[in-house]
Design a protein around this nucleic acid. Structure first.
Lengths: 125, 125
DNA sequence: CTCCTATATGCGTATATGCAAATATATGCA
DNA sequence: TGCATATATTTGCATATACGCATATAGGAG
């Protein structure tokens, strides 16, 4: 594992916010839910997720069209130590993201996302 | 403390190597000693040290013309946690730097650097 | 197969970042 | 004061990185 690239990947606010979602919630989250949580365009969320996945910081599960992301706790010990740090020190940071995420998770059917992008957006307008 | 800038500062090999020197040795080290340890030009070492100091990751002591740098363990808890991670996971990384540092520290008079740049360079030619 | 939706990815551009060389600042000493 | 040395900073340039837009891919439903 390349430590420089590892820290570099954490040196971006969007990626920290994404990781924070996984680490604070402990859940698998799909892209459209992250879009609503962070209030960022889909292509931006997707691109940063790709960077995190290339470094094995997150792993994915496909469920039909939806792709769920989660923190990869099977990564190296160093990564896991960093996860703990973020989890610990970001408790009260980016709390709006967590609030938005929870509001969005309410719309799930059981453990799965059933609405796409449009409905939540309309709900807030 | 801005976490993004904190991680960004760690996302550079030169800065990681500098921090590693402080964390593995536990010593105060002056710029010319770091130049010999990392085998990098003086302006590069100096510039990266400035970045680390602006984030309070390192602190300095002036001793005449020489300026000694060390890890700042009075920084925030998050920084200290990160220091521990680097210390732990970099034990066997950049070991040449540590070897060079130790060779250079041999030339100290007690706890202080007494030679400048030229002598060590000549020694290795 | 066709259409719809969730996700990913080229591409161009603006900004950020690192390097090299030269120069500036600061301290000690004669 | 003037000189030598240790350290810092400025400038120009090359490269990397993030963003926005548009489009491509992939899976599900009919």
């Amino acid at each position: 594992m390349n430590f420089v690239n590892l820290f570099k990947s954490l040196g971006d606010e969007t990626r920290l916010r994404l990781l924070n979602l996984f680490l604070q919630s402990g859940k698998k989250i799909c892209v459209c839910e992250m879009v609503d949580a962070l209030q960022l365009p889909q292509y931006q969320v997707s691109r940063h997720l790709t960077i995190l996945r290339n470094l094995d910081l997150v792993k994915t599960t496909r469920q039909g069209t939806w792709i769920y992301y989660e923190a990869n706790w099977e990564a190296s010990e160093c990564v896991r130590d960093l996860f703990e740090i973020i989890k610990k020190h970001f408790k009260n940071k980016y709390s709006d993201d967590i609030k938005n995420l929870n509001a969005r998770l309410e719309l799930r059917n059981g453990d799965y996302c059933v609405i796409g992008y449009s409905m939540f957006e309309r709900k807030n307008k």
